[in-house]
């Protein structure tokens, strides 16, 4: 299977890449990892006239940590997040290792996945749970927005055709607490998109009170979702079984799945509840994934 013919322009600097997107706009697609785009092109379901390859743009590479805050260059591969060591962000590696398959993770990028905006993809839910921000820019200016303003609809984002994602920022968890995070992905086999994915993270103070909570959902709506209602219930409270159960129910009610061959609407909603409950219970019980955070 061969893609339709296209022009290929490789950018070596961010400015060069921005010039290309400025010039070709809708006719062009950014080629980062290519793990979603190239299969679509091979199946001839996508046929951009121009591919702008940003793999050689050094400014877009690298992950840095400052005061617990993570800055991910737009070319950060899934495997980098899988094998990186960021104890204050336990959710990140646990989610990364469940994306697609290990070989795809070597090429596929975090920002590429966000730009593709498949509601069943994993990073959307994870980064919504973590209250991440996306930095985008065009030839003239840079702007940043919280994740929840980034996703507009299925395969549709706030990104303009002349813009490129430059960075993803994951904020530091609140100081002086225990941070826990889990990603549950119900998949039919490795390499499958999520039937339902649930990212749960929370920071607890020494007394077990929730300082912050994040819950993101995959594949249960037209976009990745943030269960803000459930998050609010948790903040300031202790993670009792009753509270956990309540939050899980609220998160399920905040989801709006479609029934399909992967499961009914009812099933998917129930899975949101099950996974939110499991995630919060695991955080409440501590265990190896919970790490001490010191200022």
């Amino acid at each position: 299977m061969f893609p339709e013919a296209f022009a290929y322009y490789a950018a070596h600097t961010l400015d060069e890449a921005l010039d290309y997107v400025d010039q070709y706009g809708y006719d062009a697609k950014i080629l980062a990892g290519g793990q979603s785009l190239l299969p679509l092109m091979k199946l001839r379901l996508a046929a951009p006239a121009v591919l702008i390859d940003i793999n050689a743009v050094a400014e877009l590479t690298g992950v840095t940590e400052t005061d617990g805050q993570l800055h991910l260059g737009a070319l950060t591969r899934h495997s980098t997040m899988e094998f990186g060591c960021w104890p204050q962000h336990p959710l990140v590696a646990e989610a990364a290792q469940q994306i697609a398959d290990p070989i795809v993770r070597n090429r596929g990028t975090v920002a590429g996945s966000l730009a593709h905006a498949d509601p069943a993809a994993d990073w959307g839910a994870v980064l919504l749970a973590l209250n991440a921000r996306v930095e985008v820019r065009d030839k003239h200016q840079s702007r940043a927005m919280p994740m929840r303003e980034f996703f507009i609809d299925t395969f549709t984002t706030a990104l303009q055709p002349t813009e490129i994602i430059t960075r993803v920022e994951i904020p530091a968890p609140p100081a002086f607490g225990y941070v826990g995070g889990h990603y549950y992905k119900l998949e039919r086999k490795v390499g499958d998109f999520a039937v339902v994915g649930v990212a749960v993270t929370a920071t607890l103070d020494q007394g077990g009170r929730v300082l912050s909570a994040g819950i993101g959902l995959s594949a249960v709506g037209t976009t990745s979702l943030k269960a803000t209602g459930a998050e609010e219930i948790l903040v300031g409270q202790r993670l009792t079984p009753e509270l956990i159960s309540e939050a899980a129910q609220v998160a399920a009610s905040e989801s709006s799945p479609f029934g399909d061959r992967r499961g009914s609407e009812e099933y998917k909603r129930a899975m949101v509840q099950v996974f939110v409950e499991r995630g919060l219970l695991a955080i409440a019980e501590g265990g190896s994934r919970v790490t001490v955070h010191s200022a």
């Binding site: 039919r188 992967r262 499961g263 009914s264 009812e266 099933y267």
Partner: peptide, 11 residues
């Protein structure tokens, strides 16, 4: 035997 099928029986 997809998980959803088993879950429906469980349910």
């Amino acid at each position: 035997m997809f998980p959803w099928k088993i879950w429906e029986i469980l349910s």
